[in-house]
């Protein structure tokens, strides 16, 4: 997934998108304590980031996966079109599985868990700025396989567990979240690192249509459960994971 390496200018310019100001401050603290990095802009919402990133054209954008007005995934996919020179890293406090899924869906160069040790944040940013990807293609292959596995334990989880009461109705453990052919096709192109525009050209679809497909895929594959769904659940007072509907 590596893109042609561009000359790495120092310091590396970074844009931060996280709705927690305290996190942004911490990130600024850490990055600016190194000579090689300069935070050129910050945003707390997806809308603000989408407005500012194209003008600032940072080398790297650190995008929180979950935002009050959207997801870092959507922002990342938009940024690839509006600011092709910007490499994105998805920042998330969920675990590796969800983070990997988010990064692949976003077409990001990698993901960073919100923890300090492990992958060094500065190294990761520098690596990505140099045009490399942090995502092992073998893992992407496994991820796709896992999603496509018919009865597999992909991120989608539509199994409603129903404790057997006295003769209570036993719901069959059915998985209704299987992907359509078109969704499969788009998922493959996403995994190849194509932008929404490229996918649209390839499949003769409007970019907006591709965008809708991506949102649908995210919801269907249960990424919603851990990210937007939390917001969705709060707004709708329902358990979205059981529905598999788009927020």
């Amino acid at each position: 997934m590596d893109r042609p390496a561009e000359p790495v200018t120092t310091p590396i310019t970074v844009f931060l998108l996280d709705d927690h100001e305290i996190v942004r401050r911490g990130l600024v603290d850490l990055l600016e304590s190194h000579d090689g990095f300069r935070v050129v802009g910050e945003a707390g919402t997806a809308a603000e980031a989408l407005r500012r990133i194209p003008t600032l054209a940072p080398q790297v954008a650190l995008l929180d996966a979950r935002l009050p007005d959207g997801s870092g995934i959507d922002v990342c996919r938009d940024v690839q079109v509006t600011s092709p020179g910007t490499r994105c890293l998805i920042l998330t406090s969920y675990d590796d599985d969800d983070a990997l899924f988010a990064a692949v869906m976003a077409g990001a160069s990698g993901y960073l868990l919100k923890q300090i040790r492990g992958t060094s944040l500065t190294e990761a940013v520098a690596h990505v700025a140099a045009g490399h990807s942090l995502i092992d293609p073998a893992l992407v292959e496994r991820l796709l396989e896992r999603i496509r596995r018919p009865q597999g334990d992909g991120p989608a989880n539509g199994t409603g567990t129903h404790a057997p009461g006295r003769g209570g109705p036993a719901r069959p453990g059915s998985r209704t979240d299987t992907l359509t052919d078109r969704e499969q096709e788009i998922l493959t192109l996403i995994a190849e690192g194509l932008t929404n525009r490229q996918i649209g050209e390839r499949l003769h679809l409007a970019e907006k249509t591709v965008k809708n497909y991506v949102s649908g895929l995210l919801a269907k594959l249960g990424f919603a459960r851990r990210t937007q769904a939390a917001v969705y659940g709060a707004q709708h007072g329902a358990e979205p994971a059981e529905r598999g509907e788009r927020p």
């Binding site: 927690h20 305290i22 996190v23 911490g26 990130l27 406090s93 919100k114 300090i116």
Partner: peptide, 10 residues
Amino acid sequence: IQRIFATALT
């Protein structure tokens, strides 16, 4: 998590 992470970053 966000607060702990921010503190750890600092």
